[in-house]
Simulated assay, not measured.
Amino acid sequence: MNYTEIAIEVAAGVPVSLAVAFGGILFGAILAIGVAAARISPVRALSGSAWVYLQLVRSMPMIALLFLLYYGLSQFQAVRESIFWPVLREPIWCAIIALSLKASAYISEVYRIGISSVPSGEILAARSFGFRGFRLYRSIIIPYATPVVLPAMSNEFVILVKASSLASLITLMDITGIAASIGSETFRPLAALSMAAVYYLIFNSISIALFRLAERKLKK
């Protein structure tokens, strides 16, 4: 099997890898809004719970989280009989959930830092003009925080895309899973895994370029 044939075979895992990476990051970014809101909340029960959640998720390795969701939860009869079992028995959904949890823990801190970067004087001035709740965030906080958040978001995005490759360890045939299978079958692991690395390099290069473009647009 030459490099062209290997590239074609590995390409079959691209849709799965994209689904895991972008699905996990999208759901994680949405969940991170709630986590960040709880983290900066003046209510100690909320901020404390968010802090505990962050410590647990960030300290747990991605591979342990994947195994816990896919292999661990299936050991409980109550889980297998619940309405969640059709989702939790599928490796792709377990991978998306695991990546979403990881993404929410890291992205929520990026959000929090972005919100904290807004000068308190601007917030007080906006409130004096009647800006409250969603209107305050839409008109003042988000426009000010976005340029601060984007560079950190691009770094987290690249890290999470690379972390999505661990989904192959729970029988998911994504880019890494197919490459590993080809390597074991043809005894050419270097060629197969190198091709997988090329695909991830392309994805991350395009993502970084898009983030840089967005940063330049915001600076104008």
Rank of each mutant, 00 (worst) to 15 (best):
Y71G: 01
V20D: 08
G177Q: 02
L46C: 06
S108F: 03
F134D: 13
S164Y: 04
I107Q: 11
R80V: 06
S17F: 00
I92L: 12
V10T: 04
G183L: 10
L88I: 07
S59M: 06
L210G: 03
G130L: 10
A38H: 04
A7S: 07
S139Q: 13
C94M: 06
K102T: 05
S17T: 15
I140R: 09
Y199R: 00
Y70H: 12
E5K: 00
V57L: 05
I25F: 02
R80T: 12
S164W: 03
A64Y: 13
L73Q: 04
K162A: 07
Y111T: 09
Y3H: 08
L73N: 03
S184N: 12
E90R: 12
I6Y: 01
S116T: 09
P151S: 15
L136G: 06
P91W: 04
F76S: 14
V16W: 03
P91I: 07
R216A: 03
K220Q: 06
E185H: 08
I170Y: 02
E215S: 14
N155A: 14
Q75D: 04
P143A: 14
E81K: 15
D174A: 09
I208D: 00
A192V: 00
G24Q: 12
A11C: 08
E5Q: 08
A12M: 09
A163T: 11
Y137E: 12
V14S: 01
F76P: 00
K219W: 03
R44S: 03
I140C: 12
G114H: 02
G177N: 00
A7F: 06
L99Q: 09
M153P: 09
V158L: 07
V110W: 04
P189D: 05
Y199H: 01
L56D: 00
V161R: 11
E81G: 15
M62K: 06
A98C: 13
A152S: 15
G121R: 11
A197H: 02
I115M: 11
R132Y: 13
K217Q: 11
V79Q: 03
Y111P: 12
S116M: 08
E109F: 06
Y199M: 01
K219L: 10
G72A: 10
L26P: 00
A167G: 05
F134C: 10
S139N: 12
I92Y: 01
R44F: 01
I25R: 01
L172W: 06
S49R: 04
S116V: 07
L26S: 05
R212L: 15
L136P: 05
G177K: 01
L18T: 08
I206A: 09
L150M: 12
P86L: 09
S128L: 10
F157K: 09
Y53S: 02
E122I: 05
A29D: 04
Y71C: 07
Q75T: 08
S100M: 08
I202T: 13
G24H: 14
Q55W: 09
Y144F: 12
W85T: 08
S181L: 14
